[in-house]
Design a protein around this nucleic acid. Structure first.
Length: 345
DNA sequence: AATAGCGACAACCGCCTCCAT
DNA sequence: CATGGAGGCGGTTGTCGCTAT
């Protein structure tokens, strides 16, 4: 037999918390600490569900929480992490001291997602819209599904498809797209290769979303994941995904994140990108221009001058948009009829 | 002044995994 | 071993305050 119910759901207060209720929670936690939340309502004299008490504490009352606005650095970190691991808000929040998963989730939904869409970036895949449309075009013969990678295709996005030049942005995207711009003369198939690698990772991470919290921790293993998402198998020929491969090419997610946290915030803004891009381009530095690579890891270049260049790129907001437009041109050259293609949504 | 529209954020809902019984 | 609640999580809804009309 299981445990007894934590509370009578039909007989507990719901809705916004009063200062008095907050005070009771705070008093209880200061005396007894956290844990065993089912007992908290009774012991603290609250007519609330224990689960509700726990949420109130973790999302609002915890003394280590920040209640001020998100900084640009935090904003960039959220975007970069979302690009890498998707909407694992609790994992993202762990990288942001004083922020909760609810904070991050709300900030993403109310601000960042719209911001990216306005810039012509698909907030799901973090790719330029035209690039995603080309991907969609290539799979347009398949039946419509609930694949979340297509979920962005809505009127709001379509209205904002074209990148604007007014939105300031210093980010990974600046670096990504500047590099994309630098690769202007690379062959189309090389571009496709990079896109494919990115796709493989995106699908691998999204296809395991049901196991949420443990995924990133598992990154330190060399376990091989296969694509479980049927749509992923259709859209990408990913028979399997080697986390070890990804780790060796991505110093950000890979093991020593704390090391990165000691670095300059510009480093934190370094992109999470397809492996072949990462290997030659990621530059990480701290104030001394030094960073130690952990055992068994790929050495990470530390170059203060490069960090400075990144900063300049970030300050130069137009470079990001220019990069997007350059990438756009590449795609349009490769798929001249991309915008004429009929899509099945 | 009234109110519709919107953004921000707190809180809830439903699902999943873990674990006590 | 089976059951069912606790805790954790992401998605969604509700509420409040501000602004435009």
């Amino acid at each position: 037999m299981g445990r007894p119910p934590c509370c009578d759901k039909s007989n507990v207060k719901r809705g916004l918390w009063t200062p008095e209720e907050d005070a009771k929670i705070l008093a209880y936690v200061s005396n007894h600490g956290t844990g065993n939340w089912t007992l908290v309502p009774k012991k603290a004299g609250l007519n609330r569900c224990g689960k509700s008490c726990r949420l109130r504490w973790t999302n609002y009352l915890r003394p280590d929480l920040k209640h001020d606005g998100f900084t640009p650095q935090e904003e960039m970190l959220i975007i970069n992490l979302h690009a890498a691991i998707g909407s694992r808000w609790s994992l993202i929040a762990r990288r942001l001291p004083g922020r909760t998963d609810n904070d991050v989730k709300n900030y993403w939904n109310t601000k960042l997602r719209k911001k990216l869409m306005k810039m012509g970036i698909d907030p799901v895949t973090h790719k330029p819209v035209s690039q995603v449309l080309s991907d969609l075009g290539s799979i347009s013969t398949f039946p419509n599904t609930n694949n979340n990678q297509m979920s962005f295709v809505n009127n709001d996005l379509m209205k904002n498809m074209l990148p604007t030049r007014t939105e300031p942005y210093g980010s990974q995207y600046s670096s990504i797209t500047t590099n994309a711009s630098a690769k202007k003369n690379t062959k189309v198939d090389q571009i496709h290769s990079l896109e494919h690698q990115y796709h493989v990772f995106s699908e691998a991470s999204s296809s395991n979303s049901s196991s949420t919290s443990s995924n990133i921790e598992r990154l330190s293993s060399t376990q091989s994941y296969s694509c479980q998402n049927p749509q992923a198998q259709i859209t990408t020929p990913c028979s399997s995904f080697e986390w070890s491969e990804f780790l060796h090419s991505d110093p950000f997610i890979w093991s020593e994140f704390q090391q990165l946290q000691q670095c300059d915030m510009q480093m934190v803004m370094s992109p999470l990108k397809p492996s072949s891009l990462m290997q030659s381009e990621v530059v990480i530095s701290n104030n001394n221009g030094q960073v130690g690579a952990s055992e068994g890891s790929v050495a990470v270049t530390c170059d203060p001058s490069m960090s400075y260049q990144m900063k300049k790129q970030c300050e130069n907001h137009s470079s990001f948009v220019d990069g997007i437009l350059d990438k756009d041109s590449e795609i349009r050259e490769a798929f001249p009829n991309i915008l004429d293609a009929a899509f099945d949504y």
